[in-house]
Amino acid sequence: MNHPPYIHVAVSLAAAPFLFGVINKVKAGFAGRKGPPLFQMYYDIVKLMRKGAVYSRTTTEMFRLSPLVSVAVGILAVMTVPLGQTESLISFHGDIFLLAYLFGMARFTTVLAAMDTGSAFEGMGASREVQFSMLAEPAFLVGLAALSLLTGESSVAGILSALRNGTGTATGHVVIPICVASLFIVLLAENSRIPVDDPNTHLELTMIHEVMVLDHGGMDLGFIHYGSALKLWVFASIIARILVPVKMSSPMLDAALATASLLAVTVAVGVVESTMARLRMLRVPQLLTGATILSLVALIIAMR
C-alpha cells in the first residue's frame, strides 16, 4: 500500500477534462493547426457553470435529473477503477457488472431526457445511441469476463492487480492483446469518438450523442461535459493499466508510469481520430459486432 486510495480519486476528478485537451491537441497537430489550449475543457466547464439554464415547458424532472446522474455515475466509476498501481476506493466481488451498468444507467437517463424534450430530432439520436450501445455493451462485458476468467477475480481492482502479479497468465499473452483491442473499440464507441461518432460535428445526419444533449444548457451542459470526461478517464485508465501492469520500486515512479500510459492511450485515441474517417452509420454495428467477437475469442481462449 503506497498511498491512500482517495488521493487517486481526487487526482482523477481534477484531471479528467485534461484528456480531452490532449486529444484535441493531437488532432490539431495532425491537421497542422495550433489547436485549443490543453485546459480548454476546464474553461468551458467553468464558463457553463456560471450560466443559468433554460428549461422548456414540455420537459419534466427527468430532463433536469439526467446531467446529475451522468456526473454521479462518473464519480462512482472513478472510485471503482484504480489508477496506475493504486488500490481503488470501492471494490467488491462482481463490481465489473456495476461498472458496466453504471454507464448503462447514465445512458438510460440521457436517453429519457432526450425523449422528454419531445423533439423528433433528439428521439432519433436516442434511438441510435441505444442501438449502438446495445452492441457495445456485450463487447465490454464479455471482454471483462475474459479477463476475469483469466485471473480468477471478479472485481475491477482485483483483475487489474492480478494481472500485475502475473497470476493465472498461462494464456495471458494471447488473451490480453485481444481484450485490449476489443476494449479500445468499446472506448471509442462509448465515448462517441470518431470511427463511431464525431464529437465535433453538428451535422444532423451523423450525430448520435451530440443530438441528445442539444437542449441542455448552462450548468446542465457543464455537468454533461464533465461526466463524459470522467467516462473517458475511466475507460482509458482501465486500458492503460492492462497494457502496463508493471510495478516500480517507488510510488512516485508508479504514478509517473501510470500518467505516461494514460497519456499514451489518449494520444492513441487522438491518432485514430486524425487518421480515420467516421464510419458510415450502417457499418458501425459491424464494427461493434467485431469488438464483441474479439471479446468472445478472448473468452473462449481464456476458458482453455
Binding site: P285, Q286, T289, G290, T292, I293, L296, V297, I300, M303, R304
Partner: peptide, 17 residues
C-alpha cells in the same frame, strides 16, 4: 449478411473448441 456472418463465426468457433 456481414454482421450475421461474424456472429455465425463466433458460434463456429465455440463449436470447434
Amino acid at each position: 449478411g456481414y454482421s450475421l456472418s461474424l456472429m455465425a463465426g463466433g458460434g463456429l468457433l465455440a463449436l470447434s473448441f
